[in-house]
Amino acid sequence: MHALRCSARVAAITGAVVLMTMTGMATSAQAAEGTFFYTRADTGRETFLGSTPNGQCLAIPGGARQATNDTDADAYLYTNSSCTSSSRFLGSRQSADYAAPYPTYVRFG
Protein backbone atom coordinates (compact mmCIF):
# COMPACT_ATOMS: atom_id res chain seq x y z
CA MET A 1 0.00 0.00 0.00
CA HIS A 2 2.84 2.37 0.85
CA ALA A 3 4.52 1.70 -2.51
CA LEU A 4 1.26 2.51 -4.33
CA ARG A 5 0.97 5.87 -2.54
CA CYS A 6 4.62 6.71 -3.33
CA SER A 7 4.13 5.82 -6.99
CA ALA A 8 1.01 7.97 -7.20
CA ARG A 9 2.80 10.88 -5.51
CA VAL A 10 5.80 10.61 -7.88
CA ALA A 11 3.46 10.48 -10.89
CA ALA A 12 1.56 13.56 -9.68
CA ILE A 13 4.76 15.54 -9.08
CA THR A 14 6.18 14.50 -12.46
CA GLY A 15 2.95 15.56 -14.19
CA ALA A 16 2.98 18.93 -12.44
CA VAL A 17 6.60 19.56 -13.44
CA VAL A 18 5.87 18.67 -17.07
CA LEU A 19 2.81 20.94 -17.08
CA MET A 20 4.72 23.89 -15.57
CA THR A 21 7.56 23.42 -18.05
CA MET A 22 5.19 23.35 -21.03
CA THR A 23 3.25 26.37 -19.78
CA GLY A 24 6.45 28.33 -19.22
CA MET A 25 7.72 27.55 -22.71
CA ALA A 26 4.42 28.54 -24.32
CA THR A 27 4.37 31.86 -22.50
CA SER A 28 7.93 32.77 -23.42
CA ALA A 29 7.33 31.90 -27.09
CA GLN A 30 4.28 34.16 -27.47
CA ALA A 31 6.06 37.44 -28.18
CA ALA A 32 9.46 38.59 -29.23
CA GLU A 33 10.94 40.71 -26.45
CA GLY A 34 12.34 44.01 -27.71
CA THR A 35 11.54 46.42 -30.54
CA PHE A 36 11.57 46.20 -34.33
CA PHE A 37 12.69 49.55 -35.80
CA TYR A 38 12.54 50.45 -39.47
CA THR A 39 12.97 53.37 -41.86
CA ARG A 40 9.84 53.80 -43.96
CA ALA A 41 10.46 53.46 -47.69
CA ASP A 42 7.66 55.93 -48.49
CA THR A 43 8.60 58.82 -46.16
CA GLY A 44 12.13 58.09 -44.90
CA ARG A 45 10.99 58.43 -41.28
CA GLU A 46 12.15 56.00 -38.62
CA THR A 47 9.37 54.19 -36.81
CA PHE A 48 8.82 50.91 -34.96
CA LEU A 49 6.36 48.10 -34.42
CA GLY A 50 4.89 48.26 -30.94
CA SER A 51 3.81 44.63 -30.66
CA THR A 52 5.83 41.73 -32.04
CA PRO A 53 3.95 38.46 -31.44
CA ASN A 54 5.66 35.34 -32.79
CA GLY A 55 4.14 33.49 -35.74
CA GLN A 56 1.84 36.27 -36.95
CA CYS A 57 2.20 38.11 -40.25
CA LEU A 58 2.44 41.80 -39.26
CA ALA A 59 2.18 44.80 -41.58
CA ILE A 60 5.14 47.17 -41.94
CA PRO A 61 3.32 50.39 -42.90
CA GLY A 62 5.17 52.27 -45.66
CA GLY A 63 7.57 49.36 -46.30
CA ALA A 64 11.06 48.98 -44.83
CA ARG A 65 14.02 50.63 -46.56
CA GLN A 66 16.14 49.73 -43.52
CA ALA A 67 15.26 47.55 -40.53
CA THR A 68 16.77 46.82 -37.12
CA ASN A 69 15.54 43.73 -35.33
CA ASP A 70 16.27 44.63 -31.71
CA THR A 71 14.24 41.67 -30.42
CA ASP A 72 15.23 38.29 -29.04
CA ALA A 73 13.60 36.45 -31.99
CA ASP A 74 14.60 36.08 -35.63
CA ALA A 75 12.46 37.95 -38.17
CA TYR A 76 11.45 37.09 -41.71
CA LEU A 77 10.40 39.96 -43.96
CA TYR A 78 7.99 39.58 -46.90
CA THR A 79 6.43 41.55 -49.71
CA ASN A 80 2.91 40.13 -49.37
CA SER A 81 0.25 39.99 -46.66
CA SER A 82 0.26 36.20 -46.41
CA CYS A 83 4.00 36.19 -45.56
CA THR A 84 4.82 33.77 -48.35
CA SER A 85 6.82 35.67 -50.99
CA SER A 86 10.31 37.19 -51.04
CA SER A 87 11.34 36.06 -47.58
CA ARG A 88 14.33 37.94 -46.19
CA PHE A 89 15.97 36.78 -42.97
CA LEU A 90 16.85 39.32 -40.27
CA GLY A 91 18.36 37.70 -37.19
CA SER A 92 17.90 38.83 -33.65
CA ARG A 93 19.86 42.03 -32.87
CA GLN A 94 20.73 42.58 -36.56
CA SER A 95 20.14 45.37 -39.10
CA ALA A 96 19.80 45.36 -42.87
CA ASP A 97 19.13 47.72 -45.80
CA TYR A 98 16.59 46.81 -48.50
CA ALA A 99 15.92 47.79 -52.10
CA ALA A 100 12.62 47.67 -53.99
CA PRO A 101 10.45 45.75 -53.72
CA TYR A 102 10.57 46.77 -50.08
CA PRO A 103 9.36 44.33 -47.44
CA THR A 104 5.91 45.28 -46.19
CA TYR A 105 5.26 42.43 -43.73
CA VAL A 106 7.24 40.67 -41.01
CA ARG A 107 6.89 37.45 -39.03
CA PHE A 108 8.87 36.72 -35.83
CA GLY A 109 9.91 33.35 -34.51
Rank of each mutant, 00 (worst) to 15 (best):
T27H: 09
V17N: 08
L4Y: 14
A64W: 00
L49C: 07
Q94T: 14
T39S: 12
A31M: 02
R40L: 01
T71C: 08
P103A: 02
T47H: 05
R65L: 06
S95W: 09
T71N: 13
A67V: 03
D72A: 07
T23C: 06
L19A: 15
L49S: 01
D72N: 15
M25K: 06
G34K: 01
Y98P: 00
C83P: 11
A67I: 06
T71F: 08
L58G: 14
T43C: 11
Q94Y: 14
M1A: 10
Y98G: 02
G55D: 02
G24I: 04
G91N: 03
T21A: 03
Q94C: 09
P61Q: 08
Y105R: 09
Q30F: 07
A59L: 12
Q56K: 13
E33I: 06
A67F: 03
V17Q: 09
A12S: 15
Y102M: 01
G55Y: 01
P101Q: 07
G44F: 02
S28K: 02
G62I: 05
G24D: 00
A12D: 13
Y78M: 10
S81H: 14
L58W: 03
V17C: 08
T21P: 00
R9S: 15
T27Q: 10
L77A: 06
R5C: 09
P61M: 07
L49Q: 07
A11Q: 12
I13N: 10
E33P: 08
G15H: 11
V18H: 09
A32W: 05
S92G: 07
A67C: 04
G55L: 00
H2P: 03
E46W: 07
C6T: 08
T71R: 06
T35Q: 06
C83N: 11
T71Y: 11
P101A: 11
R88S: 12
Y76F: 10
A16L: 13
M25C: 04
